[in-house]
Design a binder for these strands. Structure first.
Lengths: 120, 120
DNA sequence: TTGACAATTGAGCAGTCGTTCAACTATAAT
DNA sequence: ATTATAGTTGAACGACTGCTCAATTGTCAA
């Protein structure tokens, strides 16, 4: 435990608490993945896209019209959402339709809403 | 609907879909709040802090030792978490203890975990 | 094959974010 | 009062992010 003091600018006040917390900590890699996942949800444009797709699949152009943004901007964000496995593309001719790829999104949306609505 | 074309660089392909989505969209203000909330969760340091506090309240110094970071860096992040109503401070003498202020955090953590574990 | 349009991509820019650093406040002990 | 320690704060710096713009790909129709 002492070796932590090398990197920290203070003494350990509650060594037992720290060790207990350390023992219960989720795997560090998973925590990074979790943060990355929330990071994707942490942008209003992407949140709007997800909210829109919750009503049914839409093409890039539809989303651009709905959100008053360029296709390019939408496409960039859809790329992030695709890489995070939150949306799924389906090509039909020249048009690419996007849909939610995961039911968890809905759940997480709801939990988030509960939180922000409960707080003054 | 036509006025959107002024700001968009494409034609409306599925006007009915767009209108249906628009009608079902969550209030714009709430969507921004939601994105802000996820933004707070979208940082590995803050996720680690929340994960640690899930084991019980801790002081700034304990968190600094646990995460191998300076008190200053931790304090800055706790400020964000405080403002988002995710943690609650309790002063006892010179020491300030922080605790989770909301049960939703746990739920959202779990939902997020489900998502990242289910995806290859 | 040529033209048109949906969509994607990469470079670049402006704005945001997290950490560091130094200065500061608050509380307690001597 | 002085000193020490826990914590906070603001400025500054580098890294990251989201949008724009221009160029490009993919698909269809003429």
């Amino acid at each position: 435990m002492r070796e932590n003091l090398v990197f920290c600018d203070c003494d350990v006040i509650h060594g037992d608490v720290v060790e207990a917390a350390r023992a219960r900590m989720i795997d560090e890699g998973e925590l990074y993945d979790l943060a990355d996942f929330f990071k994707i949800m942490g942008d209003s444009t992407r949140v709007k896209i997800l909210c829109a797709l919750d009503a049914g699949e839409m093409c890039v152009c539809d989303l651009a019209v709905l959100l008053n943004m360029t296709k390019s901007a939408i496409s960039h964000q859809l790329r992030s959402l695709r890489q995070a496995n939150l949306v799924r593309p389906r090509r039909d001719g020249k048009v690419v339709y996007y849909a939610l790829s995961d039911d968890h999104v809905r759940d997480i949306f709801e939990k988030g809403m509960e939180h922000i609505r409960e707080v003054p």
